[in-house]
């Protein structure tokens, strides 16, 4: 019987206390490279659409209202996203980021999964346009 070592482990574990967190009250710190909800920054975006093209899950759509005036709206489907990080790598202007701490994404409303980034007025135009076409 070679269980001696295991019994020692078992007794150690008994006095050690739980290794789980009391979640809503205590939040586990995620590693720095953990990928959660994508963020987009308009400042440097050229509207090239590489992020949209490379996304394996079709989670990204860049709507161009006026390329010259840099009026872009970034539509992001959180429920489609697989958090692979390809868009961040594809972006030449570093507009995209997958921060490590925004991972509490559960919701009871499907609409919450559709996230729009961009100028507020422009987002409204895109939303209105969709309401008209019924998309």
């Amino acid at each position: 019987m070679k269980l001696g070592g295991m019994w020692r482990d078992a007794i150690k574990a008994l006095v050690q206390g739980p290794s789980t967190q009391k979640y809503p009250f205590e939040r586990l710190k995620t590693p720095e490279r953990f990928r959660s909800k994508l963020t987009w920054d308009l400042t440097n975006c050229t509207g090239c659409g590489l992020c949209m093209k490379d996304c394996p899950a079709n989670a990204i759509e860049v709507v161009t209202l006026d390329r010259k005036a840099k009026r872009f709206v970034f539509r992001y489907r959180v429920d489609h996203c697989t958090f692979c990080g390809q868009c961040v790598e594809s972006c030449n202007k570093n507009c995209l980021e997958l921060p490590e701490d925004d991972w509490e994404l559960a919701t009871t409303n499907r609409q919450d999964f559709e996230v729009y980034y961009g100028n507020e007025a422009d987002v409204q135009i895109v939303l209105d346009g969709e309401a008209e076409t019924g998309a």
Partner: peptide, 21 residues
């Protein structure tokens, strides 16, 4: 693995032409 790649499974450490991490 989570520390290196950011994920416990489906690490997506690779990218065509190299690695991300």
């Amino acid at each position: 693995l989570e520390g290196i790649t950011g994920n416990r499974v489906n690490y997506s450490a690779n990218i065509l032409g190299g690695v991300k991490c």
